[in-house]
Design a protein around this nucleic acid. Sequence first.
DNA 1: TCGGATT
Length: 373
Amino acid sequence: AVTPLSPQQILSSVESQAPSPAGPSGCGPVPVPMSPCPHVPTAPSPAGPSACDDSKTNLIVNYLPQSMSQEELRSLFGSLGDIESCKLVRDKVTGQSLGYGFVNYVEAGDADRAIGALNGLKLQTKTIKVSYARPSSASIRDANLYVSGLPRAMGQQEMEQLFSQYGRIITSRILVDQVTGVSRGVGFIRFDKRVEAEEAVRGLHGQKPLGAAEPITVKFANTPGQKSGGALLSLCPGARRYGTLHPPPQRFRLDNLLNVAYGVKRFSPLAIEAVPALAGVGLGTPGAGWCIFVYNLAPEADESVLWQLFGPFGAVTNVKVIRDFATNKCKGFGFVTMTNYEEAAVAIASLNGYRLGERVLQVSFKTTKQHKA
DNA sequence: TCGGATT
C-alpha cells in the first residue's frame, strides 16, 4: 500500500537530483522496449473512420523510473488533461515495471501539450521520453535487433547510418563501459517494422562495416525480462565446502550508506535513485556492474564454484567460466560481475590468494583487453 | 592469465 505521489511531489523531487547520467543517446540506462499500444478495442468499432483512431491522443512514455507506479504515471499526466486510459507496462512474471507505459488522453490537444510539457522531464535518475504511440499492430512486433562485434570507434549515429538502409529506425543504442564510457561493441536497433529488421539481419549479419577488422553479428534481441540464469543461486550461497572462508564481518549495505550519508530513514528504491552516486546500481540494471577476473580455477571448475565463492559478499549478477571449445574444460579463469563496487572490492580483497583445494586464486578487477604488441 | 556481452 504505497501512497501515490502527486505530480507536485514527483516534480519537486526532481529539484534535489543531480543531472541524469545520460549515455550517448541522451537517455538513461533503462530498457526501452517499444511495444504496441495496449489500448485495443476488443469489440467491433462503430462505423466512422476516427472512431478507433488514437494516433493523436495516445502517448508512449519511455525511460520511466523503475519505482514509478501506474497511479503516479496517471497522476503526472492527468495534470495536463483528462485521461481516457493509462497503462504502465509490467513484467508478466515479476510485476516489475518495464520502464514504459501508455497514456491515452480524451483530447488530442492535451496529448500535444503533454509532449511539450513532459518530454525530457527528469524524474529521479531518468529523463523521460514522451511521444505519440504508434498504432498497435502485429507488424511492429519483434522488430528489435541485437548487434555485437561493433568496432569500438563506431558511434550511435554511424550505426544508425549502417542500418537505416533497411528501414525506419525507432530507437538505437550502443552499450558503453560504465566507467570509461568506451563502447562495449554491442548495441540495439529497433526498426519500425519486423520485415525491415529481417532484411537488416539478412543484409548485415556477418558483414564487416567499412574499415572494420571483424564482422558484426546481427540477430533478433532477447525479449526483456529473460536474465542470465543462476541469479537466484546467489541468494543461497550456503556452500562452505571449499574451506574456511570468512564472508565480510561488516557487509556493505545500501541502506547503511544511505543512512550515513543522507540521513534517509529507511530503505526504499526511491531513496536509492535519489542518491546520485548509487544511481543505476540497483536491481533491474542489467549490463552494469563490476567485472572481476578470477584466475587459477581447476579444469573441472564450473559456474557454481563462482556463485558460491562470491555470493556471500553481495549481489552477483553474472558468473562465467571460460572453457576450451574442444575439451570443454575450464581454461583456468573466469569472470564474476557484482553490482556494487564496495562489495566487489571486499570480495577481491578476501578472495585474492584464497586457497581452493591445491590452487591459490588470483582475483582482481578485470583489466582492459590486452592487445598484441 | 582477462570473454562475451541482451538496453
